[in-house]
Amino acid sequence: MPVHTLPSRQVGWQRRTMVARMMRWFGWLLGVLVTVQCWQIMNEDTIWEFVYDAPAQAGDLLGRMWPPRWSVLDKLWVPLWDTLNMATLGTGLGVVLGVPVAFLAARTTTPSVSIVRPIALLVIVASRSINSLIWALLLVTVMGPGVLAGIIAIALRSIGFIGKLLYEALEEVDGRQIEAITATGASGPQRIAYGFVPQIMPVFAGISVYRWDINIRESTVLGLVGAGGIGLQLNASVSRLAWPEVTVMFIAILCTVAVSEWVSAKVRAAII
């Protein structure tokens, strides 16, 4: 009760009771302690001389990165094409694999709530927890470096993203439309085709384009672990300490990401 009687017999008001306030202070204290403790554990091995040196290092780096060596641009067109392909084909493969997973995971369409649904949800969580760079790392180890590893890495990461958003949409469809289709004597697949598919189509298109946009961004760096695309050139230039080339690549990546974001925003606006 925030209202209580003071000794002077006036009615006082405070936003929270004594106990609630104590709890809040305790919570804040705990948060601060945890953060400080984490900071200390994290920095056990930090060499502070390097850190104090950071502004000088940053200045040095900037000095070396400027002016950009534009001539390297000629070598970047093919990697950029590869980057685009990794994102697009990877998204396509991710859609092909992710859509069935979504239908198996949605409570409204799954064939079995007790067995199939948990498995589908596990696939989604596993795919979402692991960044596409780690998928790429794994695939490069398994099948060797190249664009194919990148495509599959992008696809594996996209399954979870598309699967999650789509199964949530499937669980929120208008049940009356489904009921009406059921009442006509439609079979299970027909109910999905006429009841569910038209309802989730706009969401599905939006999700796919959005994921494609994210995938462009991610595929620019997959080359760092050997999966093809512009990241491969970036890695080479960084290890050769060819900083003027790195600047050009940064600019190329930024432009690619900006263009893909613009395209994705336009397409999504057109769909809705």
Partner: peptide, 24 residues
């Protein structure tokens, strides 16, 4: 928001040296 985390990490590792501080 423009750069992927991993590219930012490359730069910060260059500046702060290897280790979790650069990651943080």
């Amino acid at each position: 928001r423009s750069f992927p985390e991993i590219i930012v990490a490359i730069l910060f590792v260059k500046m702060f040296g290897f280790g979790p501080l650069a990651g943080m």
